[in-house]
Computed example of a mutant assay.
Amino acid sequence: MQLEQPARETGWNGTVPNAFDSRILGFVGVTAALAASLNVPYGGVAFAVAAFGVLAAIGVVVHVLGERKLRRITDGLVERWASSGAEIEDVTRSSEGMRTEWTVRTPNGTVTVGGVALVPIARLSVEWQGVGDSMDASEAEADLDHLAASLYEEIFEIQAAA
């Protein structure tokens, strides 16, 4: 006689939420305003306003591209972990300082995946049980299968063996 295990209900719907971060956009706006203000003595107010517009637009694009890259990596990691048998309870957006983060809740603990969402300097960081590691986001995206497998082994298999 075999007992049926009750199906576990999860809060995760299979997607990673967006993380458009207003703090980074504020930082971009302040930086663009400071850079544009340097143009006032040389090109006048009209030139400074135009410079602000260009710099702010570039900053927004850089943030959007960085956020999308980090979100794709996070989504790829969580998807690969779930397909390998890990139980994902929920994925929520969180933030700390100037970092854009997602909190992945599992029965084994909380995994925080994120980084700075500005595309030329985007770095991915993964933290679990107080131990973190970071790497260039482009490097992580290029080797996502290996990264997901090594993190799965560290987070889910070692915990199950203990």
Rank of each mutant, 00 (worst) to 15 (best):
P17M: 05
Y42L: 12
E141N: 07
L3W: 08
V16T: 11
A51P: 03
W12E: 01
L70E: 02
L55S: 07
E101V: 11
G66S: 00
M1K: 08
V111T: 02
L3S: 04
V78G: 01
A149K: 05
P41Q: 07
W102S: 09
E9M: 14
V28A: 15
V60P: 06
A148M: 05
V45P: 01
A160D: 10
A46Q: 09
S84E: 08
L55W: 12
A122Y: 02
G97Q: 00
V113D: 06
V113S: 00
R23H: 14
L65C: 04
P6Q: 11
D136W: 15
A57W: 15
G132A: 13
V116K: 01
D133P: 10
E154Y: 08
T92S: 15
S125L: 06
L77N: 00
E154P: 01
V64C: 09
F27D: 03
L151D: 07
A148Y: 02
R93G: 12
L70C: 05
Y152R: 13
A117C: 13
A86D: 02
S94D: 15
A33F: 08
A140C: 10
S125T: 10
D75K: 14
E89W: 14
L144D: 04
Q129T: 11
A160H: 02
L65M: 15
E127F: 07
Y152T: 04
S37A: 11
V40W: 10
V91Y: 00
A46V: 08
L70K: 01
G76E: 10
R93H: 05
D145W: 02
